[in-house]
Design a protein around this nucleic acid. Sequence first.
RNA 1: CGGGGUGUGGCGCAGUUUGGUAGCGCGCUUGAAUGGGGUUCAAGAGGUCGGAGGUUCGAAUCCUCUCACCCCGACCA
Length: 564
Amino acid sequence: MRWSRTLIPTLKEDPADAEVVSHKLMVRAGLMRKLASGAYTYMPLGFRALNKALQIVREEMDNAGAIEILMPAVHPAELWEKTGRLAELGDTMMHIYDRQNRHFVLGPTHEEIVTDLVSREVKSYKQLPLNLYQIQTKFRDEIRPRFGVLRTREFIMKDAYSFDVDAEGLEKSYQAMYDAYCKIMERCGLKYIVVEAESGAMGGDVSAEFMVPCSAGEDLLATCTQCDYAANMERTQPAPLPEAQAEEKPLTEKATPGARTIEQVCEFLKAKPKKLVKTIIYKAGDETIAALVRGDHEVNEAKLARLLGCEIETADAEAIEKATGAPVGFAGPVGLGIKIIADQGVLSVRNFVTGANKADTHYLNVNLGRDFKPARIADIRFAVEGDNCHKCGAALHIQRGIEIGHVFKLGTKYSKKLGADYLDENGQTHPAIMGCYGIGINRIIAAAIEMSHDDKGIIWPAGIAPYQVEVIPLNLDMPEIIELADKVYAELDDAGLEVLMDDRDERPGVKFNDADLIGLPVRVVVGKKAMAQGGVEMKLRGEPGPQLISPENVIEEVKKRLES
RNA sequence: CGGGGUGUGGCGCAGUUUGGUAGCGCGCUUGAAUGGGGUUCAAGAGGUCGGAGGUUCGAAUCCUCUCACCCCGACCA
């Protein structure tokens, strides 16, 4: 492709509305433009990169035995009612109504649709296992789209759904997808970490996320510095903290006027947050309960909900006052008449500070066991930097990451509700055992750029670069240069390489800077300097210094470099 | 949805405090010079100052409402 014939509008300055590098560079390098918050047009270069990633995903899915289909983006709302997810995910779905006011949603994911299909078409164990996948645009009414293409309202996803006769089959299907995902990440040039994850609204209890570690990521993940433990922070289990051994001091009431938050109390008492224990009141089903964590920790509501076996939400001011008899900010476990769940970390402090269930008052020297007895002591907090691995005891490292893919073992949640049953050899009916496997194509591009760029621009991993080679003719006033550049371009093209030639009548500096910006892996410069020595220059993006090569060897040399 | 911020030519911004009819850089067009890391000179094109209403002789500027976008939070496969 010739630059002059396509559309690559590069920008010298960062767009004002971009925060993260990938967003800035995708706009500056002319990959995409924003239409509205969370909705982007992919221009030629961006679309090519997207297609590269997509093709890799498709090939690996096919290799893993998954079968491609295409489902609609428009779904009747009824189908979502059947599984209860219309209520559960309703606000994250885009709702549309047809002219007869029938209710439809734009698909945020396709478990319902594919399961409905399979329930109709698959009747026998002989048809299983089956793994159906599609590559399609998903719609989610995100509360806050952000970070360019990392969180959008419309995005391309590859989603696969496996159906098996038993747990053993599911394990195989799951493993095949897991392995395929590893290959995809590698082929896309992404460094990645696989972490244990929270299944959330998908259901099921085993899931793993494929994360690309980088500062722009929205997720926090913990990895063990010694063993192979890695988990999303939502799921990370810290090693239990050692129990405190200090001598118990007498319980004391202390006036703390106006000090409600941990910061305020610490300031007032000149104490460290870890010497405090905070009491958070939750509505758990019909019950109101109190969760206790150390002042420097945070309650992990997913863990708490799982422990209690029901959905929870933080209580409102009214409920808190009713439960504690005190205004918000002074709740404490001593004398509290509701069920108390204490985090294990609370055991690591003695003589701590808590609210006194009385306005403007805290207790000093509170001790678990002596002053109150929790119904349960469990892990209900988020891990923090400084925590240790619960498997091997070594330090945990916490970092940010971009979630590229997520694989789930779903079990029978959907197949039961939607009647995806099969008959076994004995004519017995069973629900199919399902797994689902998603990967965000757009995020592959953004993550690759986050991971691989410098102050000049993008440095594409070869696997997903929009073109493999950029040919830059300089000194366009010399016909022999144009002739040689055309020849090199044609030969590379004929050799099956993807070539972009910057044929614009621009100054060298402009072309070099744009070449660095768009970041294609190999750059071939045809100019009078090299020509005087009978050659052309070749350089890898991200590596210094071009080297002179003979025009006859261009194809061979380019190929060699692309493979390295 | 709560808090904060920003909307001025294609892009990035100044001007708003103190009202007087719009400016800078980049980009774009034409011409000339230049020609290996965003070159220079000259001449141009291009703006309902996000939108609506109001105050005023006069509004980018003041007031009211509204829309969009960004950030933090809540929320979220």
